[in-house]
Design a protein around this nucleic acid. Sequence first.
DNA 1: TATCCGCTTAACGACTTCTTAATGCTTTTG
DNA 2: CAAAAGCATTAAGAAGTCGTTAAGCGGATA
Lengths: 228, 228
Amino acid sequence: MKILIIEDNPDIAANVGDYLEDRGHVVDFAGDGVTGLHLAVVNDFDAIVLDLMLPGMDGLDVCQKLREEARKNTPVLMLTARDTLEQKLQGFKTGADDYMVKPFELQELEARLQVLARRGKAVEPRVLKVGDLEYNLDTLTVSREGKEITLNPTGLKLLQRLMEASPRVVSRHELELRVWGEELPDSDSLRVHIHSLRNAIDKPFDVPLIQTRHGIGYRLVHPDAVQT
Amino acid sequence: MKILIIEDNPDIAANVGDYLEDRGHVVDFAGDGVTGLHLAVVNDFDAIVLDLMLPGMDGLDVCQKLREEARKNTPVLMLTARDTLEQKLQGFKTGADDYMVKPFELQELEARLQVLARRGKAVEPRVLKVGDLEYNLDTLTVSREGKEITLNPTGLKLLQRLMEASPRVVSRHELELRVWGEELPDSDSLRVHIHSLRNAIDKPFDVPLIQTRHGIGYRLVHPDAVQT
DNA sequence: TATCCGCTTAACGACTTCTTAATGCTTTTG
DNA sequence: CAAAAGCATTAAGAAGTCGTTAAGCGGATA
């Protein structure tokens, strides 16, 4: 599994990280909320271990921003020293999937992470489908009407988000966040990428899938499919 | 949510069940492992609360059989008085999704159940409805009598506020605040936007929904619907 | 080193949306 | 009932956004 640990105490971080790495997982670290959030948005982790007490942005903020702004539903396990019911409820409310109180057993942490990752996988299929468009996340292959389509890395990222969200509208800002993280390019590069994505996905076919919501963002939807 | 409680202690079962029912959930009970497993297999619950100490078949067996034989992946929250690490690990190994140790807070139980049910279920679209008018907040699509209506961003913002408030009156100032924030335009731009909103929503249909409250603001109501 | 590929930037026209202002109608108020 | 204020309607220009194209930069590749 690929796991992100957001924890400001280096001892705890190292302790947890070492254990998980010994168990064969790949571990990334962040010492504060901002970089943690950034890593979580840009990468695709199987699970995130999130301490509540963080310098700058605290854990609840990180979780909430991850869910609402970045619209990522990577499983989050919250970690805290304080053990009040109120705290826990608030943690779950911001979108946490599990909650452990220090001190805890490393084995239990790993077991819970594994359960979270297992659940998360079940929801997100390995192949995204919208109409006749398919995107295999394992082979990073895109095809429409059975014909293979090759895309740039940026195109893939955009397409993934659009397909995940379909038929919802994805704001320009969210797309930019997904591709570049917090440090956006100076110019409106997104427009050019959308254009080339359209060239690859829509232009060779009869029905265009990518729609523009002027002033808001984009939307990927198959017109014939049943909408609500 | 539809929840199954498998618990042999009638006091605890009643206690938990009453609380969950008060919170608006539908609860089923089973006093032993065999009937619990049977109910879990036959029905589709959103989550299962499973005690470990059960007469006959114990909780671990129930969980394992549910997963392996019945191949159901209904979320399972295990409940136990014993708090050994070994127990917990075994619980997760048999396919539990969460694990709580007695005594526990009912509110936390509900929060965890909600998280479990949330995963694995597709997020249902958020839709505002007033009469035959519908506004899907995810796809940003508006329709009336099934016919699609396209609106510009400002129109969407106004409509959202009016529909949220319906059938109450929304003051001009509140609407302006919603669209422009604190820095309002110099002229009374709101009137023009309301006008174009009416053109889109009311003009093509028989019954107008947007009413003017002179000197106060606007109101969106379906006249036929029951009002207070 | 030369070539390719992907990304960014810039520029331009086309298009959409927003604001402003002018005019006439409706409601309120003294 | 008349004046004043608030509102509806319309049109036109300003401002903003989008699609498209092409040039330049830098890293990777051969």
